[in-house]
Each structure stands twice: as structure tokens, then as C-alpha cells.
């Protein structure tokens, strides 16, 4: 008798046993607590962005003459367009927040230490890419903020000595914002950056699988109890419940605080009060405090130090094995970021 199962097995030689083997990464017990699972949250939101982004791209028209009107159409006329756009916008915000929280968890638990330095580097790339996707995303709407944000962003690359002027022209497709600019931002936002991110997420997860999640032991744990539980189905269930909570949260946010249309871009007038999205407040305040090149180079230095941190930390610990420096530096860094963000949020200029 024709057996579908046998037919498939002959062509795809993987059985339930191997599948079990493949997915049954033993997961340390502390991952039963949700705050250890923050890494899964951006991954989930990434999928939400791909799906909602593809839906938006059905109506979006990336040219200065059409972009604003097409987003208005999505928001006001296309059935449930407001919902899809709201999901995309809120998932972007939550994604930045989730990546930052995940990174803080990794940092403060020292999970970047040997042998996981390389995965910290991959994670840093993902953080920067998330910020850049967010930036190129809100440039697409062709609101005032989109236009002036893109102009300022391009001129920031221009402040980089030597190569900056070429980078700016590559980004804008001209010396200033022009007819070619929006389609570049769109291709970056909807193709180049997401594909790069997908590849890096795959690498990130592969490295986690190869090295295992860092194990932690708590004093209140029963030493006789098993230290691990199964990825499938237990951990998957945790992740799925996080997915459910996130979808409810996103739907509520998209409905209660829907994405709106700001004033249309006007290349001749910068509005009197202009602010980027909240996750760029730090950089925006920094740019007001120092001259152009100094601000850009110092931000570059901070990013470089963040990349190099696992290696710097290893040197510190070689020299002083019980040093708590990483914790203090982390707290100082987090407070500085919060302070600059709150400062920028609380004043008009």
C-alpha cells in the first residue's frame, strides 16, 4: 500500500528521532524564568516585521512625489492598513527595546566572556542593524521628520574624516537629498538590511547552539534536581507564550496608540521643534553638545569600545581576577544613556 510517510522518508531522510535529537538542546533551568528569554523576543519581533513589512510594501511607493500619499493611503483607506502599519511601527519600537534589554542581560551576567566573545560581536552588529533599520524605516514615510532625519543622518556620515564624503553620496545617491534617495532607503530598509540581519541571527543562534547558553546556579536551587530541561517542548512553550503576550501587546498598542501622519516633508523648512525617535535621543543630545566631527568620532569610539568589551574585560580580569569593574562600568553607561535620553525628552531644544 502506498504510504505517504514512507514516500516522504525516502526523499527527505530525516525521522522523528533525528528531529528530536536536533531540537533537543538541553536548556539550563534558569531559562524557565522569562527574563532570561529576552533574546527570543527580538527574534520573534523580527518575524513580525518581515510579515507586516511585506504587507506594507504592497502599497508603499518609494518616491518623493508618492511616498507620503501612499503611507496616507495605507493608514486611512486600505482596509486594516492602520493596523498593519501600527503593528510594524510598534514592533520596531519594541524590537529596539528588546535588543537593548537582551544585551543588558548578557552584559550584567557576564555571558559575553570566553568562549562567547564572537557571539557578542555578532550581537553588536545586530544592535546597530536594528537601529539602522529603524532609522531607514521612519525615513520612508516622507514626513518632516523623515526628511530632516535622513538629511542629518547622511551628513553625520559626511563628518567621518576621509571616506565620509563618499559614504554620504553613496547613501543619498547625490550630494543632497534627491529623487534617488528614497528608493535607496527603501531597498536598504526592506531588502539589504533585513537579509543581513536574518543571516546574522542564524549565525547568532548557531553559535548559541554550539556553545550552549551560559549556565547559572542560584543558591535557592535544589542541587539534586535536574539542571536542564528540554528545548522541545518545554522551552518552545515558554517562547510561544511570550509570542502570545507580545501579539496581544502589539495589537493593543496599534489600536490604542495608532500610527499617525505627521506633516509632509518640506525641503525648504526645518520645523521649529524637531526630534528623532526616542531611541536616537542619546545620539541627538550628544550632537548638540559637541562639534560635528568630535561628536561623530566620540560616538564611533564608544561603539568600538562596546565591540571590544569582552577583550577589554578579559584584560581587566587577568590583572584583577575579582574585579567588579564590568558591573560599575555597565551601571555608569546605562545611567549616562538614560540621563541623556531623559534630558532630550524633557526640553524642546
Amino acid at each position: 500500500m502506498f504510504s505517504l510517510q514512507a514516500w516522504i522518508r525516502e526523499r527527505v531522510p530525516v525521522g522523528p528521532e533525528q528531529l528530536r535529537e536536533l531540537t533537543n538542546e538541553p536548556v539550563p533551568n534558569h531559562l524557565k524564568k522569562w527574563w532570561w528569554c529576552l533574546g527570543g523576543t527580538p527574534a520573534y519581533l523580527f518575524v513580525v516585521q518581515i510579515v507586516t513589512g511585506i504587507l506594507l510594501a504592497f502599497y508603499y511607493k518609494p518616491a518623493p512625489q508618492t511616498a507620503y500619499e501612499s503611507v496616507r493611503y495605507i493608514t486611512e483607506e486600505a482596509s486594516f492598513g492602520w493596523f498593519i502599519r501600527g503593528l510594524h511601527k510598534w514592533a520596531a519600537t519594541l524590537m529596539v527595546a528588546a535588543v537593548v534589554l537582551h544585551q543588558m542581560r548578557v552584559y550584567f551576567t557576564g555571558a559575553y566572556r570566553k568562549p562567547r566573545e564572537l557571539n557578542w560581536l555578532v550581537g553588536m552588529c545586530l544592535l546597530l542593524l536594528t537601529l539602522v533599520v529603524g532609522f531607514t524605516g521612519y525615513s520612508l514615510v516622507y514626513e518632516q521628520l523623515s526628511y530632516w532625519g535622513a538629511t542629518v543622518g547622511a551628513n553625520i556620515t559626511d563628518s567621518v574624516p576621509v571616506v565620509g564624503v563618499y559614504m554620504k553620496q553613496l547613501l543619498l545617491g547625490g550630494e543632497v537629498y534627491n529623487d534617488n534617495t528614497l528608493s535607496r532607503f527603501f531597498i536598504l530598509h526592506a531588502a539589504v538590511l533585513p537579509v543581513t540581519m536574518a543571516a546574522l541571527i542564524a549565525l547568532h543562534v548557531t553559535l548559541i547552539r554550539l556553545q550552549g547558553v551560559t549556565e547559572f546556579h542560584f543558591k535557592d536551587e535544589d542541587p539534586k534536581k535536574a539542571k536542564f530541561f528540554n528545548f522541545f517542548p518545554e522551552h518552545l512553550l515558554t517562547e510561544l507564550s511570550i509570542g502570545l503576550v507580545l501579539m496581544i501587546l502589539l495589537s493593543v498598542l496599534a489600536t490604542v496608540l495608532p500610527a499617525e501622519m505627521g506633516p509632509k516633508a518640506d525641503p525648504l523648512t526645518t520645523p521649529e521643534v524637531i526630534k528623532p525617535e526616542w531611541f536616537f535621543y542619546v545620539a541627538f543630545r550628544w550632537l548638540k553638545l559637541f562639534t560635528g566631527t568630535l561628536a561623530v568620532l566620540s560616538m564611533g569610539l564608544v561603539v568600538f569600545l562596546m565591540y571590544a568589551w569582552p577583550f577589554i574585560d578579559a584584560q581587566i580580569r587577568k590583572w584583577r581576577p575579582n574585579s567588579e569593574a564590568s558591573v560599575w562600568i555597565g551601571i555608569a553607561g546605562a545611567l549616562a544613556i538614560i540621563a541623556l535620553t531623559v534630558w532630550e525628552a524633557s526640553v524642546a531644544h
Partner: peptide, 17 residues
């Protein structure tokens, strides 16, 4: 960084927002 300045007559200056 390329924004548009405007003249503020009360302060006798150009201001970049």
C-alpha cells in the same frame, strides 16, 4: 548637519532648530 536655519528678528540671529 544640513538643516534649514531661519532668521529670528527678535534675537537678531539665524537659528537652526
Amino acid at each position: 548637519l544640513g538643516c534649514q536655519v531661519h532668521w529670528e528678528s527678535q534675537n537678531e540671529r539665524f537659528f537652526c532648530p
